[in-house]
Write a protein that binds this DNA or RNA. Structure first.
Length: 479
RNA sequence: GGCGGGGUAGCCAAGUGGUAAGGCACGGCUCUGCAAAAGCUGCAUUCGUCGGUUCGAUUCCGACCCUCGCCUCCA
């Protein structure tokens, strides 16, 4: 098979292009993912984006890149402040709780979590934020309004020869500016300007920091600029987030970061932007009133597992709106069972056989790689996986596989799974009483007492176990 | 009003200027005492509608219909 290279859609160029990091050796990748605002439990839509980010990271690593993965935790923001006020908790106490839950949910979905130093909190980077705003003020791009807030001037920014509107086509004349702006307005010079530093107001309570412009707190976009540049440098490779963040959040991040003029000559703030599409749930936009608003814990409570949720979220292209349904989760369950069955049989056959060094890359891996190289075409990748499952099952049924071949097949599968992150099926050894029942059924069958055997099978099912009669005797499977 | 996605089988979902991947569901078969969330196998003359270009269009072009998102809260 012809060798391919990784290609990704870049929002900046609106094209699929080869992904090449700044690192001349082409190995190290700086990747920033816009993380959660921790004011509530994350919902399944949030996690689509994080699973997508995880897929990107894992695939880059699969492709031999060393990924420096950073994800921020936004722990100061309007909604958080409101909730802090309502609950009477301290900001720290409030956000720490939801941060822990978020990280647990990520693990539940088997996402690789950045190491602690790469999980920056906005409140822990106030000096870096102030420093960045000072640079913008010094260059005349930011100004302090009469209310004490500091704003970013898009007009001044453009005056410096910079381009505002890199990620989206903007047409200020035709924009319906003003329709949805009200509560957040202070004393901006121009309606398109956005806050870098918000002056303290009574409702902020204890949530404020001193700054050269008076007490206040960071604006929404500035933290990502400050923290990404603090951890990855002023110019890095990959930045991703949900599609809704394209504008204004990411556009403003570019403006702030490039407006500060800290990049080496000719280098952008970020080389490659990736955006994950949203999802619908049961064909509709998620909303609490429609009853189709699910958090990860809601789905776990319904009996689905993290790997089933992950599998479903990974079943469609990240660039398309995806319809997430409970029926889809059932489908993911069936799909995983098929894979587990096949992999389980291979494992049984392989036993402890050690794989001999394989001179060639297995077709499973090359096919998968070709699919994923094409802008992470997971659908095509799944097709490769299931073709392999079918072929493997055929070979198994025909007794064509040796333990050595099974070992090699397993190794190939495990290589893929470093990207898919499905992991092994939870083993769940049957407890003694279940095994005893199964043995009793064997005895009943031997005695041709099929009524008794079927009764036991029904009893096992009621207790959550399915029994499958194989050539090697009964096999117990947890439902 | 501006900008940007979509409409492919019962459902989910890839894809290509040369005759439609894969999954789920469903049917058939195998295994089985009967079964199985076990295995194999079958399942779109057709890709929103109407025109155009072409030897050939689901794919390119145009018009139209429907649908979703963004336009300063948002994954």
């Amino acid at each position: 098979m012809e060798e391919t290279r990784l290609h990704l859609f870049n929002t900046l160029t609106r094209q699929v292009e080869e992904f090449r990091p700044f690192d001349e050796a082409g190995k190290t990748v700086g990747m920033y993912c816009c993380g959660p605002t921790v004011y509530d439990f994350g919902h399944i839509g949030n996690f689509r984006t994080f699973v997508f980010a995880d897929l990107v990271r894992r695939y880059l690593e699969f492709r031999g890149f060393k990924v420096n993965h950073v994800m921020n935790i936004t722990d100061v923001e309007d909604k958080i402040i409101r909730r802090v006020r309502e609950t009477g908790k301290s900001l720290k106490e409030f956000t720490a709780g939801y941060t822990d839950v978020f990280l647990q949910d990520l693990k539940e979905l088997n996402c690789l979590v950045p190491e602690e130093k790469n999980l920056p909190r906005a409140t822990e980077h106030i000096p870096q934020i102030i420093d960045l705003i000072e640079k913008l003020v010094a260059r005349g791009i930011a100004y302090r309004a009469t209310d004490g807030s500091v704003y970013f001037s898009i007009e001044k920014y453009r005056g410096c020869g910079c381009r505002y509107g890199q990620l989206v086509n903007l047409n200020f004349e035709a924009m319906r500016v003003g329709e949805r702006v009200a509560s957040d307005e202070y004393d901006k010079e121009s309606v398109a300007d956005f806050a870098l530093w918000k002056a303290r107001v009574p409702d902020d309570g204890d949530v404020f920091w001193p700054s050269p412009w008076g007490e206040g707190r960071p604006g929404w976009h500035i933290e990502c600029s400050a923290m990404s540049m603090a951890l990855l440098g002023p110019s890095f490779d990959l930045h991703l987030g949900g599609e809704d963040l394209t504008f204004p959040h990411h556009e403003d991040e570019i403006a702030q970061s490039e407006g500060a003029g800290v990049q080496p000559a000719g280098r952008p703030f970020v080389k490659h932007w990736l955006h994950g599409a949203h999802l619908l749930v049961e064909g509709k936009k998620m909303s609490k009133s429609l009853g189709n608003y699910f958090t990860v814990r809601d789905l776990l409570a319904k009996g689905f597992t993290g790997r089933e949720i992950r599998c479903l979220l990974l079943s469609a292209s990240y660039r398309e709106t995806f319809n997430f349904t409970l029926a889809g989760l059932e489908g993911a369950r069936a799909q995983l069972a098929r894979i587990d069955e096949c992999v389980g049989k291979l494992r049984e056959l392989a036993g402890s056989t050690v794989a001999s060094a394989s001179p060639s890359v297995p077709a499973l891996v090359t096919g998968f790689t070709a699919a994923m190289d094409s802008d992470l075409n997971v659908s095509a990748a799944w097709a490769v996986v299931f073709d392999w499952v079918r072929d493997t099952n055929r070979s198994l049924a025909a007794n064509e596989l040796t333990p050595a071949l099974a070992t090699a097949a397993l190794a190939a599968w495990e290589r893929l799974d470093t990207v898919l992150g499905l992991g092994a099926k939870p083993t769940g050894e049957a407890p003694a009483d279940i095994v005893a029942l199964a043995n009793e059924r064997v005895a009943a069958k031997k005695a041709k007492d099929f009524a008794r055997a079927d009764a036991i099978r029904a009893e096992l099912k009621a207790k959550g176990w399915v029994v499958e009669d194989t050539a090697k005797g009964p096999k117990l499977k947890k439902i």
